[in-house]
């Protein structure tokens, strides 16, 4: 119990650094030129994707550290996954960014983890990260579904008129 608190404390103290590493790793999945552009420009409107990734990774990390429940985790991953759901990447890549968090934690706490005996706690942390990944997967599926729904909705917006008019024989077929 004591140890656990210690690991959490440690993580919380280093959260900023971990988040930064993670963010960097996520950005690095994009082409180099894009990485440069998204990392550099900090204006939230000129660079909405970079900004969302930056803010989103931090939100997720905080949620993980607080041991947030499933619902909260979903909320935290939504912003990022919403973006990745429409970018040119495979589903695994779109969601896989979550696992980079494990690497980020290990990279940041490398020394402490090697010396200390946080193995069990670390394993638990990793389980939480897995939970985030599952949540991300849910959100991803949902957003993809939304995309197809939007396609249909767009057609639907015309339908009342279209049907109204064809029923009355005013639109020539074709």
């Amino acid at each position: 119990m004591v140890e656990r608190a210690v690991l959490l404390d440690l993580l919380k103290r280093r959260a900023e650094a971990i988040a930064t590493r993670w963010y960097d790793a996520v950005l690095a999945e994009y082409p180099e030129q894009t990485y440069a552009a998204w990392k550099r420009e900090s204006n939230r409107f000129a660079n909405p994707v970079g900004h969302s990734l930056r803010a989103g990774t931090r939100t997720i990390l905080d949620a993980v550290l607080e041991g947030a429940d499933a619902e909260a985790l979903r909320g935290a991953v939504t912003d990022i996954v919403r973006i990745r759901a429409v970018q040119q990447m495979s589903p695994s890549a779109a969601v896989g960014f979550v696992f980079r968090l494990k690497d980020a934690i290990r990279a940041e706490l490398g020394d402490e983890l090697r010396n200390g005996s946080f193995r069990d706690e670390m394993a638990e942390m990793e389980q939480r990260v897995d939970a985030v990944a599952l949540a991300a997967f849910d959100v991803f599926a949902e957003q993809r579904e939304l995309v197809s729904e939007l396609r249909i909705n767009e057609l639907k917006r015309n339908i009342p008129w279209a049907t109204g008019r064809t029923n009355r024989g005013v639109v020539e077929p074709g």
Binding site: R21, L27, A28, E29, P31, R106, A107, G110
Partner: peptide
Amino acid sequence: KKEELVQIQPK
């Protein structure tokens, strides 16, 4: 090994 993980290289 920190170094390996630290070295973030964009794609």
